[in-house]
């Protein structure tokens, strides 16, 4: 089987893959980064979103063999160099932006992609951008608050639903 090399969270990774090996399988089963969650495995829930060359990608819907040489960031790569939580992660904790936590890795990575593109998104822009990430606990209100806080905005002033 061919060996596929990527840079994952800044470190070189390599693993032998089949054609059908998904990026999510590569990350979780082959290099042991289980922070990326596979929710639906049908491209609908967004729990498995990681960054590939800075772009949000559903890791269950990309083949590892197609990503030779890619730079991948997973939730494990989100902490600060000293191991403390990043601003986004801390905001999710502070504002209780998770209930069961299963969707959280995807939420955090999509938030990272959003804030890289749009550092001060409005509430509407946040809700629109996160539409591909499903929280089955329906904890969206606090997730949006967390993203507002992570972008340095007032998290208390959400529009009434």
């Amino acid at each position: 089987m061919p060996k596929v090399m990527m840079k994952v969270n800044g470190a070189e990774a390599a693993a032998e893959v089949e054609g059908r090996t998904l990026l999510s399988t590569y990350l979780r089963d082959l290099i042991g980064l289980t922070g990326t969650h596979v929710g639906c495995d049908t491209s609908q829930c967004g729990a498995c979103v990681v960054l590939v060359d800075g772009q949000p990608v559903k890791s269950c819907t990309a083949f590892a063999a197609d990503l030779e040489g890619a730079e991948v960031t997973t939730v494990e790569g989100m902490t600060n160099p000293d191991g403390s939580l990043s601003v986004i992660q801390q905001a999710f904790q502070d504002y209780h932006g998770l209930q069961c936590g299963f969707c959280t890795p995807g939420m955090v990575m999509s938030t990272a992609a959003l804030l890289a593109e749009n550092p001060k998104p409005s509430e509407e822009e946040i809700r629109h951008y996160l539409e591909g990430n499903i929280c089955r606990c329906t904890g969206y209100q606090n997730i949006v608050r967390a993203v507002m806080a992570a972008s340095g905005q007032d998290a208390g002033a959400l529009a009434a639903e």
Partner: peptide
């Protein structure tokens, strides 16, 4: 089209 992750690929 789709959502941001779909649009990226």
């Amino acid at each position: 089209i789709g959502d941001p992750a779909v649009r990226a690929r």
